[in-house]
Design a protein around this nucleic acid. Structure first.
Lengths: 200, 200
DNA sequence: AAATGAACAAAATATGATTATTGTTTATTT
DNA sequence: AAATAAACAATAATCATATTTTGTTCATTT
């Protein structure tokens, strides 16, 4: 008989929330390796069995924690982008917010104890799957408004925006020093709208 | 008394070559962790003391091996780029060659045994320092030929070219499937010369 | 119905003794 | 002069074993 598949945990379920909160707290404090299911249960004041009911194994739990983290990030970002007028402003925000997240969020504390794990995550293409699906509406909107060319395929534009955003988040410095929001914005304005060609 | 500083090994010195060749062979076969200085000495048919004379410690030896690897790559790339007419062709070549190197070179075999080490290297900004210094002449040449705008600062253009090259090497797929040389080239032609704006 | 707690074998991890490697030094050889 | 070989303490890897943790099951509780 086909039981629970564990593939899509319900982030609204109070039990799931309790588990993820506890797990997140543990990872934040001890890292993934030194976090046991028993410890998560203790911190969340629940039974180990409940965790295994909602997440098939430790790996799924860890994955669930990071997926929720990313989902919350994308939701926050989405909300912020709605208020921004141009694609340049949106990508600028994504970069600034992305950096803040990597520097202050759960990744930052994990990087202290398990830098190789974090590095592997950042280089895993799957890590960016959700973010890729995030951009097409914004690309189309920018095309409709005439900010960018209507002749470019949405998938190509998405790819480019993602590459810029990921690159600028992972590497604040790659020849140029791009620290402040204003510098990031003016850099993106040139690069995103005209590449290395003449401005319009 | 100030002795040898170990900071810049002479890649022309036959002894240095023997050490690096042996070390490279060992890393290729066993990975960094399972390579001992004694083994390198045995493979290179030389004494452990000689290795310590030329490289202060194991870490310096490993660094020396990767630095030479990168230097050879840059030399090969430089030679190939001289024959290419446009910046687009040059970046295309750099991406294709870079991928080949990461998929077939010493990094590929290392990734089998120590993926976290490789991941950490790829995310280390220092790893790209030499490559950054590589592009400015090509940028200026493209400006002189009128391929790209003369109004853009060389450092900004270098930064952009580096971001594209690194991103496309590390992530063959980031929304778009960019496998073949021709697809990479046409993508770069659009992105590099016009960004998301209209072509000229 | 879902959560709990206890029990369990299998797998992973910590522990401590043992062995190998590192990095230094020194005398000797090329 | 540089390379070698051997000796050495300090550090790190290894391995067998004790301990913990995992993932599963099931009777009991909420």
């Amino acid at each position: 008989m086909p039981q629970a598949q564990f593939n899509t945990p319900d982030y609204a379920d109070p039990m799931v929330i309790r588990i993820l909160d506890a797990g997140e707290q543990c990872i934040h404090r001890f890292g993934i390796r030194r976090t046991s299911m028993g410890e998560v249960a203790r911190v969340g004041k629940l039974s180990r069995g409940s965790i295994y009911r909602h997440f098939g194994d430790k790996d799924s739990l860890v994955q669930g924690i990071f997926r929720r983290q990313q989902e919350l990030f994308l939701n926050r970002t989405e909300a912020a982008l709605e208020k921004l007028p141009t694609l340049v402003d949106k990508v600028t925000h994504a970069v600034v917010a992305g950096r803040k997240d990597t520097e202050e969020g759960i990744f930052a504390s994990l990087a202290q104890t398990e830098p190789e794990t974090v590095a592997s995550m950042y280089l895993d293409p799957k890590f960016y799957g959700r973010s890729v699906a995030f951009w097409p509406p914004h690309i189309r909107e920018a095309q409709d408004k005439g900010e960018i060319s209507a002749g470019i395929e949405v998938s190509a534009a998405t790819d480019f925006v993602m590459r810029l955003a990921v690159s600028m988040t992972l590497f604040p410095q790659m020849g140029l020093e791009l620290r402040s929001r204003s510098r990031i914005r003016s850099y993106l304005e040139q690069i995103l709208l005209s590449g290395l060609g003449e401005g319009h």
